[in-house]
Design a protein around this nucleic acid. Structure first.
Lengths: 235, 235
DNA sequence: ACAGGCGAAACTTTATACAATTTTCGCCCA
DNA sequence: TGGGCGAAAATTGTATAAAGTTTCGCCTGT
């Protein structure tokens, strides 16, 4: 009688293997093991995960919809290379949506949620102490997704998942130095405000957090959208 | 040298036939020829469009991501049945995003865009005069998409396309009477404000327009999310 | 007569085979 | 020696076949 067939989160239908492929490729992209522009051949991925091209294609199409993979007709799938203009759009959208999300999170505050948030902060601090930059980026994104889950708004959650995936790629592409992901303390401040049910402070902290993240980026405008000779030659 | 391979709008890769299937099914759903809960068999659709199930499946997955189709594992695809809670989320998101979109549209105002907007208003009025309710609902949604295109923000445009698709389904499900889609005059007011570069008025008109649309809906709360025995037995 | 279970049919899911397109590389010619 | 044409190889797009799951009718046992 329980909803046994309801999977868990994102895609309400796809098979377990498609999820594994999608999450595996996503992790590889967001942890910067697959650089932007890298070709994602169907046979290649299929052999890695022991799956046929049918499942790989499904996973790649989902990633394309999330914006971290581009599919070009008759040419294949490639890791997305967000432009500075893309980056500005993504952060503008986040500045619009996330303050509203924390607002709703405050309405949904409960001991259980506070516990989850604080456990997450602990994990973030651990990764930061270990100097594990990859885990830090991943956990930083997951913090925002956790707040969105807490808000209980499935639409906002879906939008934010897409924005977070793109953001992670953008941060890894455009950050000035190896900024040590100092955002954990910002996250802690947001959690505190949520716990105190202080909407104004929570919104303000989220907004300034996003502004600081974007401020750490170097969003140079390429001459044209397509011509980035310097990049290619430099690599 | 031009970007010849850049298709046109939504899906950056899929074949023309997939687009035709997707748009055909979308039109059928949004024009209320396919009622919520209707099963969308792969063979059935494939035979209608003369395509194999591979292409049908691709199209259905895209529609599932847009939120107007639900795919249940090992059971197939069904026309979505948004709940009142879904409806409230969709309209809350639209109230958040669309005022910002018109803001950017004002920044992008140009004679060409004004021309497109006014031509669209003409089409809307025509459909309304004809009493073509189906075309009215479709054109009403397309107006909002047009403004989003004008804003030049691809992220907002993508989000809005999803919200519009869901909204159309919601309106057809929950509107009180056969409300004669009187929104065309609201749209005209928004266009006027955009033409005058009056952001404040444009935002305010968009917001009140959305509020009026939602106010015309009858969003009863079912007892539980899953148990709608009354609906089933009543039908 | 009715509850329970077996089994076939229909459908989705996954894998594989075929066709079309692109890319690559060797070869020829200026 | 450099450039361009062309065929072969590789890769994607599409269709079809095999495998697994659900559903529903039917049959049996009580």
């Amino acid at each position: 009688m329980a909803a046994k067939s309801r999977p868990k989160s994102d895609a309400p239908d796809v098979s377990d293997r498609v999820i594994r492929i999608r999450e595996g490729v996503t992790a590889a992209i967001l942890e910067h093991r697959l650089l932007p522009g890298t070709k994602l051949g169907e046979d290649e991925i299929g052999e890695i995960y022991g799956a046929s091209r049918t499942l790989v294609r499904t996973a790649l199409q989902q990633l394309a919809h999330e914006g971290i993979v581009n599919i070009e007709k008759n040419r294949g799938a490639f890791v997305a290379r967000p432009t500075p203009a893309d980056a500005r759009e993504v952060f503008e959208a986040r500045r619009l949506i996330e303050p509203t999300i924390v607002d709703h999170a405050v309405d949904a505050v409960s001991p259980a949620w506070i516990g989850r948030l604080q456990q997450h902060l602990t994990e973030e601090r651990d990764a930061e102490l270990r100097g594990d930059a990859r885990a830090s980026v991943r956990l930083s994104g997951e913090f925002h997704k956790l707040v969105a889950e807490m808000s209980g708004h499935s639409i906002y959650l879906g939008f934010l998942k897409e924005l977070i995936a793109r953001s992670s790629l953008i941060i890894l592409l455009y950050r000035r130095h190896d900024t040590p992901a100092c955002g954990t303390e910002h996250h802690a401040g947001i959690v505190t405000a949520i716990r105190k049910r202080d909407k104004e402070t929570a919104r303000a902290q989220m907004l300034s957090h996003l502004n600081e993240i974007e401020a750490e980026l170097f969003l140079k405008d390429p001459v044209a959208d397509e011509l980035r000779l310097a990049d290619v030659l430099g690599a």
